[in-house]
Simulated assay, not measured.
Amino acid sequence: MKNEITPEQIAEWKAKHGDVWKITVEDKVAFLRSPDRKTLGYASSVGASDPMKFNEILLKNCWLAGDMEIQTNDSLFLSASSKLAQLIEIKETEMVKL
């Protein structure tokens, strides 16, 4: 990656987007935000007929900065795809019938 990401940039992203994630594939790096409902809804609807598209949409829509080869090189993309599910954070939930 040509321009190094500073701690100040990461703090700015966190203030704007919440959680920020770093994915490293070989010597390539990408910084991602957690997906919002709109992104998840779109990725899920398209992903129903094309599962690889789900990861592609998630990666592109959550992208903050990084080496674009992670998006364009199939090998790097597939490696990054194996970690994208971790972007979707499910909180512990309790439901009680009253």
Rank of each mutant, 00 (worst) to 15 (best):
L76S: 08
D36M: 02
Q9V: 11
N55M: 03
S44K: 13
K38F: 07
D50L: 11
S45L: 14
A43D: 03
K16E: 15
L40M: 08
L76F: 10
W63R: 14
P51Q: 05
N3E: 12
I57K: 00
L98F: 07
H17S: 03
W13P: 11
D50C: 03
A48D: 03
C62A: 12
L78M: 11
D36V: 01
K38N: 07
A15D: 14
D19G: 12
T39N: 04
N73G: 03
I88H: 09
Q9W: 05
E26T: 06
A65N: 12
K38R: 04
S79Y: 05
A80Q: 13
D27P: 01
D50R: 14
N73Q: 10
Q71E: 15
K22T: 12
N3M: 10
T24E: 14
F54N: 02
L76N: 02
L59C: 06
E69F: 04
F77I: 12
E69Y: 00
V20D: 04
L64T: 00
K97S: 13
T39Q: 12
V25G: 00
L76M: 09
S82R: 08
A65C: 07
G18Y: 04
C62R: 01
I23E: 06
D36E: 09
A43H: 00
K83Y: 12
K53C: 02
N73T: 03
D74Q: 15
S45P: 01
M52C: 04
A48L: 10
R37F: 09
L32S: 03
L32Y: 07
